[in-house]
Amino acid sequence: MFRQDPLNTILALGSGFTPTAVRVTATLRLPDLVDQGHRTVAALAAETGSDEQSLGRVLHYVSLLGLFEETTPADDGADADEQAEKQYELTDVGRVLLSEHPSNLRRWLDYDDPSRAMEARFEPAMGRLRDAVRTGLPVYEQAHGRPFWEDLEAHPDIEKSFNTGIARIANRLVPELARIHDWASAGHVVDVGGGNGSLLLKLLTEHPGLRGTLLELDSVIREAKDTVAPVADRCELVAGSFFDPMPAGADTYLIANTLHNWSDRDAARILGRCAEAVVPGGKVLVVERLLDSGKDPVMASYADLLMLVLLGGRERSMADLRGLGAGVGLTLTGSKRFELPGHWLVEFTREEAR
């Protein structure tokens, strides 16, 4: 990553300037501008309204990080300013910060983008990682005075930003989830903590023989009524907590992107409630990012630390999930990888004799 000796690599990785410089790059849309043909410091400074020398210093730094390839034309004997002669080309790393990149990462790092209110809210908690490492407990409340979920409720703008981010992930997972599992053999699915019902709507629309139940908090259920209206004749809305007894008797219980919010103890409680409710031989389906997925390991590890500081939860390996399931009478019987890097559909079957 860094074209430095080991000492300077550690200095760059540990320096506060590294994330800041990358975010300045994203905020000024430098990758977009370079991709459009503005390849000199002078041209980029003119396009962004920046001081040329200062911008050149940032460009040099992020080029060393691998975002751009920095070149200097051959010396023709002229006394031109070397800084102005430098030209920049995007690398594969830098292309991830293009505005049209499907990851939408540039907006996530853009200081000026109002949709990143939630990510900006994360940062003070991330700065308390040392305390989380010492105690094993979340530190979001230390940073903001309220636990994570209560803080969202108190700040509607931040809650909207958070929900937008979650929706982006869900929108990428939902079509594939509807396709990769044998839903035709299922009769009744309970979407546990299923948000506004968009996933359940997709499943019931594509599989007319399927019935569904959405289990969510009362405040979310009120919003979900409109979402699932097209399939209301096959969809029941139940207000409640997944830590309490669930609607019983379905053959499939789905928990998508939820277990990682919780500690092992609480995740086992959620799975245990599913195991109590599902019919013998029925399925409990878990959609999660896996630490040992073999793809996108850095993002999985990043998300793992984020769960620690925000909620005291964690990303897990396949072995972790197998162990949690076994503890509540569920046997891991299958898994399928999503195209979205790191995400898996993990299938548990309730043991016939319990």
Score class of each variant (00 low, 15 high):
residue 149 W to V: 11
residue 282 G to R: 11
residue 120 A to Q: 09
residue 293 S to Y: 00
residue 321 L to D: 02
residue 19 P to T: 15
residue 168 R to A: 05
residue 1 M to L: 05
residue 13 L to W: 13
residue 256 A to R: 14
residue 83 Q to E: 10
residue 68 F to G: 00
residue 61 Y to D: 04
residue 167 A to I: 01
residue 96 V to K: 15
residue 263 S to F: 02
residue 27 T to K: 11
residue 129 L to K: 09
residue 273 R to S: 04
residue 204 L to K: 15
residue 125 A to M: 10
residue 33 L to N: 06
residue 260 H to A: 05
residue 111 Y to M: 06
residue 343 H to Y: 06
residue 304 D to F: 10
residue 64 L to H: 06
residue 115 S to R: 01
residue 186 A to H: 06
residue 261 N to Y: 08
residue 189 V to M: 12
residue 22 V to T: 03
residue 182 D to A: 08
residue 142 Q to W: 12
residue 204 L to Q: 06
residue 184 A to R: 15
residue 267 A to C: 10
residue 304 D to I: 15
residue 37 G to T: 04
residue 348 F to E: 04
residue 178 A to W: 01
residue 185 S to T: 14
residue 6 P to K: 00
residue 284 V to G: 02
residue 108 W to H: 09
residue 15 S to R: 05
residue 212 G to C: 10
residue 288 E to Q: 13
residue 265 R to K: 07
residue 307 M to N: 12
residue 18 T to A: 09
residue 113 D to W: 03
residue 163 N to Q: 02
residue 34 V to K: 00
residue 213 T to H: 09
residue 8 N to Q: 08
residue 226 D to E: 12
residue 244 D to G: 07
residue 242 F to Q: 05
residue 134 R to K: 15
residue 210 L to A: 12
residue 112 D to A: 08
residue 51 D to R: 15
residue 157 D to W: 02
residue 85 E to Y: 00
residue 133 V to W: 12
residue 346 V to D: 06
residue 331 T to Y: 07
residue 13 L to N: 02
residue 283 K to T: 15
residue 104 N to H: 11
residue 116 R to E: 08
residue 34 V to L: 00
residue 146 R to A: 14
residue 19 P to I: 13
residue 182 D to P: 01
residue 239 A to E: 02
residue 285 L to G: 07
residue 273 R to H: 11
residue 143 A to H: 04
residue 279 V to S: 12
residue 219 S to V: 13
residue 338 F to E: 04
residue 118 M to Q: 10
residue 106 R to C: 05
residue 197 G to W: 06
residue 323 G to D: 03
residue 25 T to A: 12
residue 330 L to A: 10
residue 307 M to I: 09
residue 126 M to W: 14
residue 11 L to M: 03
residue 136 G to L: 10
residue 295 K to I: 03
residue 6 P to H: 01
residue 57 R to P: 03
residue 83 Q to D: 08
residue 163 N to V: 08
residue 190 V to Q: 12
residue 98 L to S: 06
residue 137 L to S: 06
residue 253 Y to L: 14
residue 89 E to C: 03
residue 89 E to Q: 07
residue 63 S to L: 13
residue 267 A to R: 02
residue 96 V to M: 05
residue 27 T to E: 05
residue 28 L to E: 00
residue 264 D to F: 08
residue 302 Y to G: 08
residue 233 D to P: 02
residue 301 S to Y: 11
residue 156 P to Q: 03
residue 183 W to L: 14
residue 268 A to C: 01
residue 12 A to G: 04
residue 178 A to S: 12
residue 52 E to S: 13
residue 108 W to Y: 13
residue 136 G to I: 14
residue 273 R to V: 15
residue 313 G to W: 07
residue 214 L to W: 00
residue 244 D to R: 15
residue 17 F to S: 11
residue 176 E to N: 04
residue 292 D to H: 08
residue 219 S to P: 02
residue 36 Q to L: 14
residue 63 S to V: 09
residue 292 D to Q: 11
residue 101 H to C: 00
